[in-house]
Design a protein around this nucleic acid. Structure first.
Lengths: 216, 216
DNA sequence: CTCGGCCCTGTGAAAGCGCTGAGGACGCCG
DNA sequence: CGGCGTCCTCAGCGCTTTCACAGGGCCGAG
């Protein structure tokens, strides 16, 4: 088990507690150190604080995932409103716990995580004759490559992870457009337009008053 | 012993012959099946045909090596000029035999291979006509040596380990430039520029807003 | 059929991103 | 000490992308 926590007392407590449960535990106190350990050590899971010196927990997971490491991650955060749960899960953590937390709950979540194991993330998303490969950053439609800009790619990625479901503009703004409260929802319409032009007219359905849906 | 060979008669002959020598022999008839067997079974060596349905022998070895399996591999190929010996050895095979071959020779080579055992050695990385030998610190392009500085070499090394994938500047900074939170991402651009000059313009693709990709 | 609101899209400005040449800092060697 | 090679910074340029906006089309309700 890898524990990444800068508060020395909490880190020590976790280490002792987990060792008592039979885990072998390493501790890292800073973001960069944690990232490094997660990369190299063969851990079964990681407990990760959000607030860390050098590199936030979010950023740490994001980078880890970007490098194709699927180590299960349980995130810890002080609930100070600055960060929230959705953010944590969004950036690639597998579970989330708010400080202060009960030790028993932590153990239970951890066990659940380990039971699940490192899920083999889908390498390639595929819906109909559309294919999107996040690692290679390639999109093909009926085996023909489609060139997308960064934003278009992010949008399509998001939609392809929930094909057939209606996704609201607000949600898309939140996730694809980094929570900018002051951007008009019209951007979404514009980008859906771009995608339609590149992928075919009827692939993205408009659900009036509700959002958009990727045809399955 | 694992024999990966799609020609049924040859496969059967090899199996019988090797069993007569006291080997336990499994046969796989397709590339994917062979890869799978090589991954899981604890074989001492593999005899591998180049021309296979589903996945070529070259690709099979490459993948195996990429996953850190150092099972000794003896490659077989019809000498039709399309593939050649250098290719076979470059992609990570340990020895090479051209069809038609004498059974005695095959046995001798196999024995030699087993004597040597599985060496823990990094393979020569090879993508397209690019070759990079980490041990010798040498890079060739279409068999012509290319002189690279240390940094250029490290960068190319990193990219060649994940050909086709998009790798972000952040990740490159992390790995090639060690822990430089305060170095501008511009260094990466500069060095990609250097590599392009030495390796050819279109070998390194820019993926705007995401990173770089080594063309496969 | 009409109307109001929702959605689409062409236009264009601004910002962002990546490439490159110039050049400074540093270490190595003669 | 000067020449050389490597590493890296910096600033300017050109292209792409992003986004706001506005006019017009479409849809559903009444």
């Amino acid at each position: 088990m890898l524990v990444v926590e800068d508060e020395a007392r909490l880190a020590a407590a976790l280490q002792r507690g987990l060792q008592a449960e039979g885990f072998a535990v390493d501790v890292a106190a800073t973001g960069p150190a944690g990232l490094d350990a997660a990369r190299h050590g063969g851990y079964d899971a990681m407990i990760l604080d959000v607030m860390l010196p050098g590199l936030s927990g979010y950023e740490l997971v994001r980078r880890l995932r970007a490098e194709q490491h699927w180590l299960p991650v349980l995130m810890l955060s002080a609930k100070d409103g600055e960060y929230d749960q959705a953010d944590g899960l969004d950036c690639g953590a597998d579970d989330y716990l708010t400080k202060p937390f009960s030790y028993v709950v932590l153990l239970a979540r951890l066990r659940a995580l380990l039971r699940r194991g490192a899920p083999e993330r889908p390498t390639v998303l595929s819906v109909g004759d559309l294919r999107l490969d996040p690692a290679r950053r390639r999109v093909t439609r009926a085996d023909a490559e489609v060139a997308l800009t960064a934003r278009e790619f992010a949008l399509l990625d998001y939609l392809m992870r929930r094909p057939g479901q209606v996704i609201s503009k607000i949600e898309l703004l939140d996730h694809v457009w980094d929570a900018s409260l002051e951007t008009a929802p019209n951007v979404v319409e514009v980008y859906v337009g771009y995608l339609r032009r590149k992928l075919g007219r009827d692939r993205l359905e408009t659900v009036r008053g509700a959002g958009y849906r990727l045809a399955t």
